[in-house]
Simulated assay, not measured.
Amino acid sequence: MTMQAFPLRLLPGDDLRGAIETALAGQDAAFVLQGIGSLSVVRLRFAGRPQADEFRGDYEILTIAGSVSADGAHLHMSVSDADGLVLGGHVAPGCIVRTTAELLAATLPGHAFTREHDPATGYPELAIRAR
């Protein structure tokens, strides 16, 4: 039950979240460990807000990490704009790669992730099971 790490490179125009979900499709349990790159469109949902905010321009991905299951991805990211202003939050669909996104992902054989309603939080939260 060894973690298997592998690199991903996304291309200009790719939807960041969608490409990650596609690349890790069929995996029962995976994580994005880290990533760098650039975006022309950033869509982040900030803490406590119901909808994502959208920003257009030249942005650098400083960090990205999160879990991926058959139920989809739960990713958080920090980005900086051309003036060095840093934003961070929950990655929403529609973040568009500008020049590249270079990611390190890992799969966890022997585990299965799902998202299940947690009555304590009111949200679908990560459920981890051994296979």
Rank of each mutant, 00 (worst) to 15 (best):
A5R: 12
A5Y: 06
A5K: 13
A5Q: 14
F6P: 09
F6K: 07
F6T: 03
F6C: 01
F6W: 08
F6R: 12
P7W: 02
P7V: 03
P7L: 01
P7G: 13
P7T: 12
P7H: 06
P7F: 04
L8Y: 06
L8C: 05
L8N: 10
L8M: 13
L8D: 10
R9D: 08
R9V: 14
R9T: 15
R9K: 13
R9P: 00
L10Q: 06
L10V: 11
L10A: 03
L10W: 02
L10N: 11
L10C: 06
L11R: 13
L11Y: 05
L11K: 11
L11S: 13
L11N: 12
P12I: 07
P12V: 09
P12K: 02
P12E: 09
G13T: 08
G13N: 12
D14F: 02
D14Y: 01
D14W: 00
D15F: 01
D15L: 02
D15H: 07
D15A: 06
L16H: 04
L16M: 04
L16Q: 05
L16N: 09
R17T: 08
R17D: 08
R17A: 06
R17H: 05
R17G: 03
R17Y: 02
G18S: 07
G18Y: 01
G18P: 08
A19W: 00
A19N: 04
A19D: 12
I20P: 11
I20A: 02
I20C: 04
I20Q: 05
I20R: 02
I20E: 10
I20G: 10
I20F: 03
E21R: 00
E21G: 06
E21A: 10
E21I: 03
E21C: 11
E21N: 08
T22L: 00
T22F: 00
T22D: 15
T22E: 14
T22Y: 00
A23K: 07
A23L: 01
L24G: 11
L24P: 14
L24T: 12
L24D: 13
L24Q: 12
A25H: 10
A25F: 05
A25I: 03
A25S: 14
G26M: 06
G26D: 11
G26F: 09
G26W: 11
G26H: 09
Q27A: 15
Q27L: 10
Q27T: 12
Q27W: 10
Q27M: 10
D28Y: 12
D28C: 03
D28W: 01
D28T: 14
D28I: 00
D28V: 01
A29R: 04
A29Q: 12
A29D: 10
A29L: 04
A30N: 08
A30W: 04
A30F: 05
A30I: 03
A30P: 08
A30R: 02
A30Y: 10
F31G: 11
F31Y: 14
F31P: 00
F31W: 14
F31R: 15
V32P: 13
V32N: 08
V32Y: 07
V32I: 15
L33V: 15
L33C: 15
L33P: 05
L33E: 14
L33H: 08
L33N: 15
Q34R: 11
Q34V: 13
Q34W: 08
Q34M: 06
Q34G: 12
Q34S: 15
Q34L: 10
G35L: 02
G35T: 09
G35I: 05
G35R: 04
